[in-house]
């Protein structure tokens, strides 16, 4: 629960999310919870590709490392925050600092060599194409 909502519009969806979060704390995934790490991640799918968005603002792109190995995508990097000036007080400290690593299991039908990654406005967007054969094809009836 990294980016909380303040004004839940849809109370049912909010309750569902709460239930899911509770469930996850009882049955965590093998690599810890799905939610709540840095960077926050969104995953989407189209018939041709798998799209992964890692929300990693203020990260030097040179420290980013993206790897696909055995169907698992790893996003790693480091975020350094400006040092606290002398005699300064840190009133609110919510932003993540340090090294990070997040892992996403990919579907079986992806083409790992076709992956591309872009970093823009603090979002790392990774796009991985699906194998040709997996794209659904309409068969015309003669």
């Amino acid at each position: 629960m990294y980016y909380r909502t303040f004004f839940p519009r849809d109370i049912l969806a909010e309750m569902e999310r709460l239930q899911r979060d509770l469930q996850q704390s009882y049955d965590p995934s093998i690599r810890g919870g799905l939610r709540g790490g840095f960077p926050a991640m969104n995953v989407g799918s189209t018939p041709q590709s798998v799209e992964i968005y890692a929300f990693a603002p203020g990260v030097d792109p040179a420290t980013l490392d993206v790897q696909i190995e055995k169907g698992v995508l790893t996003v790693a990097g480091e975020r350094t925050l400006p040092a606290l000036p002398e005699k300064a007080t840190l009133h609110i400290d919510e932003r993540f600092a340090g090294r990070f690593r997040r892992v996403v299991t990919l579907p079986d039908d992806i083409e790992p060599n076709s992956a591309s990654a872009k970093y823009r406005d603090g979002v790392l967007h990774i796009s991985i194409a699906r194998k040709e054969t997996a794209v659904p094809r309409r068969i015309s009836i003669q």
């Binding site: 980016y3 303040f6 004004f7 519009r9 929300f55 609110i92 919510e94 932003r95 603090g122 979002v123």
Partner: peptide, 28 residues
Amino acid sequence: RPEAGLLPPVNVVEDANGITLYADLPGV
């Protein structure tokens, strides 16, 4: 009522001459 939004994480630092606020707004 403002539209629903996510709360961006922030750091707030105060020194003798003022306040510096950092906010994470990825994708904006």
